[in-house]
């Protein structure tokens, strides 16, 4: 889409990372999920019998609707049984602003007591039991969406309960051995739930959903382009790391002279001033009401800055 709009897209994934990620997920799930269930039991298994052989239901079906239905059925059967069940790449649906969004978690484990636990497998390492907090945060938000989607199925499934603690599985230290950590996603779940009830705009929803979520792509490229232009400019530099369209938005934001181009935090002290030219004009005394505290502070800042630069140039320091 970014390329279609004429802005270069910075993204793409290294095949080294891709190969490694896939190899790691395969390793974690190898042997009928024995290792995965061992990790899960170690950290979340209190009160249950150790998993022996886990049931791995076949979840293949035609189309996302078919897979979703198949997943719901498998969840019901697993909950009714009193053993451990591992659902490998189940498909879940979440109704967002009237359209179904399909989600595919790495795995969901059904405990003998009917608890459903979301499992996220990531290829960033846990070194000495800690990991990149930004990446863990992203994984937690992603899992929270899965938890919400699962809760809708659980509400109509006898004896089911969705765990708010998810299992994050990562490579240990510098090896390819899996290790796991429990992440409490109650906060992320609460935030996402509130967002889903409040959000009506499709682009916000897209931002709130994990990557890999698929919309029904019912519109042409031209329509997309128009839609993107219609979105109010909410560009912030954080977008650069998250969105393919960010360079496009940045160019627009810069052309408009929006101060947010320099970072969200910049706005904090600029009050109602939103453009670079506007701020500079206020600072230099060309525009603005000196009784407005923003304008007054800007002029003080400009004067102090000019005075200091002059002092340094002239070499005349005060004591």
């Amino acid at each position: 889409m970014a390329t279609a709009l004429g802005s270069p897209a910075p993204f793409g994934q290294s095949q080294f990372a891709l190969v490694r990620g896939n190899a790691f997920e395969a390793k974690v799930k190898a042997g009928g999920g024995t290792e995965l269930l061992r990790l899960l039991f170690e950290r979340l298994g209190a009160g249950a019998d150790a998993p022996g052989e886990a049931v791995l239901p076949d979840l293949t079906a035609a189309g996302p609707e078919g897979r979703t239905a198949r997943t719901a059925l498998a969840l019901r059967e697993a909950t009714a049984s009193d053993g451990w069940t591992l659902l490998d790449h189940p498909m879940l649906a979440l109704e967002v602003a009237g359209s179904p969004v399909y989600l595919e978690p790495d795995a969901v484990v059904v405990h003998p007591d009917g608890t459903w636990t979301v499992v996220e497998i990531k290829s960033f390492p846990m070194i000495d039991a800690s990991a990149d907090a930004a990446k863990v945060g992203a994984a937690a938000r992603q899992s929270a969406v899965y938890v919400l989607a699962l809760e809708r199925i659980a509400s109509v499934t006898e004896g089911a309960r969705v765990g708010h603690r998810v299992l994050l599985v990562c490579p240990k230290d510098f090896s390819n051995l899996p290790t796991a950590s429990v992440v409490d996603v109650r906060k992320q779940r609460a935030v996402t739930r509130r967002q889903l009830t409040r959000l009506t705009r499709i682009e916000d929803i897209a931002a709130a959903l994990p990557e890999g979520a698929t919309f029904d792509p019912g519109c042409t490229r031209e329509e997309l382009g128009t839609a993107v232009e219609a979105v109010p400019a909410a560009y912030a530099p954080e977008c650069l790391a998250a969105c393919e369209l960010a360079f496009h938005c940045r160019a627009r934001s810069r052309a408009e002279g929006a101060v947010e181009t320099l970072g969200r935090g910049v706005r904090g002290e600029l009050g109602g001033l939103t453009t670079v030219a506007g701020v500079l004009a206020a600072a230099s005394g060309k525009e603005g009401d000196p009784a407005d505290p923003t304008v007054a502070a800007l002029r003080r800042a400009a004067a102090l800055r000019a005075e200091a630069l002059e002092t340094a140039d002239g070499g005349a320091r005060c004591r």
Partner: peptide, 18 residues
């Protein structure tokens, strides 16, 4: 709504509520 919390998450830290 425009600033949903996207806090980083540190492993092993007890979640503080709310």
């Amino acid at each position: 709504d425009e600033h949903p919390s996207t806090e980083p998450v540190q492993l092993g830290v007890t979640v503080k509520f709310p």
